[in-house]
Design a protein around this nucleic acid. Structure first.
Ligand SMILES: [Mn+2]
Ligand SMILES: [Mn+2]
Ligand SMILES: [Mn+2]
Ligand SMILES: [Mn+2]
Lengths: 216, 216
DNA sequence: TAAAAAATTTAGACAAACCTAAATATTTTA
DNA sequence: TAAAATATTTAGGTTTGTCTAAATTTTTTA
């Protein structure tokens, strides 16, 4: 099928496309921890296979077949993360690197059975939606905590930053998926936010508030 | 750590070493579906890393570190096969290729937790022993059915041939791991064997008898 | 035990996926 | 709107793991 490198490039293009019309060479190089010239080489190869639309200097978008492959990789990534947390008791900050490897196991039959084995979960441990075997999924409508006002609140349903450092911090504060929060104050000096939770109050920086997502 | 190709070579050397003092270049080329010259290149590389003992023209053996790596790959292979059969309901003839990929997932913590999740199984779906996290395992003392006499018998505990064709054939005849059998007759003409099982009788060729293993 | 046959290694290439440095195109800014 | 700055591509290499063809070593056989 496709090589591991090709799969990682397609997945990166998909992720970066969520925040912009088209994706630039440098964006990809930064995300993939590689050099712009290496990205250009791969873009030519993916364009040759008609998995991306590529015009030199103008950035790239996925074609329909390219997007299908990208979504399938993401499906595998998230299902394996769910497995690692729910069945093998890993913490949500420990699973990403393992899933980066496991997402390349090729069998679709395997992943469909894994999906069934776990009861067709809809969201991964970080709150991200898991595409079904046809690539369909719905995102709930999320807002960063930083975007809501005093006395408003909601349920924590996702994170923007998936780094272990951030996830560990949230865990320690009890700010995990499914928790109800309410903003009780915004400190004028640095715009940090005071959150009321079921049985305690925590104060988070603007930076943290930007990366913590809730549903209203 | 080691590349996927290196791991596959080490594993092959381990498997071939079970039937001979040292392993030849051509044996490896046949098993790995590659050319002898490619094998020579890799042997130099593995010798450089001190994972094998290699004298040109004289074949190879694993060093202690090389064997440790090989056994760990085999541990992963067999645990994933067990998972696929016991948890995802694959048949024993369907899992080998998937496990060939999964055995290269690098995390040992993952495999140790998988082991625990499944209750520390001792044998894989084909009857092969699963090394524990220290690389230790014991093989039960097996004989091919072809080596036993009329009126002798035992319990099916392994296979020598892991091909889907052979495994499917055994499945169809009910000759699966754990079944009790007894040799009731050996046909003089072609030395095929008649086996009595719990509630039926089957006749198998010499070829099949050579590849079916039992404990006495 | 010397030739023939077989096994193995060496030499020289190639594709994939990277890299650095140089060239070129695009965008920003004065 | 022309420099300057930035982004991207091209040119030329490297490493890994493969290949074919040729050379060499070992084993078999007559
Ligand atoms: Mn992840
Ligand atoms: Mn995730
Ligand atoms: Mn197997
Ligand atoms: Mn097996």
């Amino acid at each position: 099928m496709n090589t591991l490198a090709e799969e990682n490039y397609l997945k990166s293009i998909y992720h970066l496309s969520l925040n912009a019309e088209s994706v630039s060479t440098n964006q990809m190089a930064a995300l993939l921890n590689t050099k712009a010239s290496s990205v250009t080489d791969m873009l030519k190869k993916l364009a040759e296979k008609e998995l991306i639309n590529y015009t030199p200097y103008q950035g790239v978008t996925l074609t329909a077949p390219g997007e299908k492959i990208a979504i399938n990789i993401i499906r595998k990534h998230r299902l394996w993360e769910f497995f690692l947390v729910e069945k093998l008791n890993f913490k949500w900050d420990e699973v990403h690197e393992m899933a980066e490897e496991m997402e390349h196991i090729s069998s679709n039959e395997l992943i469909d059975r894994l999906d069934k084995f776990m009861g067709f979960p809809k969201y991964d441990p970080h709150g991200d939606p898991i595409p079904d075997c046809d690539g369909k999924f719905k995102t709930h409508d999320l807002k960063p905590v930083s975007a809501i006002d005093v006395n408003a609140g909601g349920v924590i349903c996702g994170v923007r930053d998936h780094s272990p450092a951030f996830l560990q911090y949230l865990e320690k504060q009890g700010l995990t998926i499914g928790k109800q929060i309410c903003v009780t104050d915004i400190i004028e000096f640095d715009r940090s936010m005071v959150l009321k939770m079921e049985n305690k109050t925590v104060q988070i920086s603007r930076e943290v508030a930007n990366n913590l997502l809730i549903t209203l």
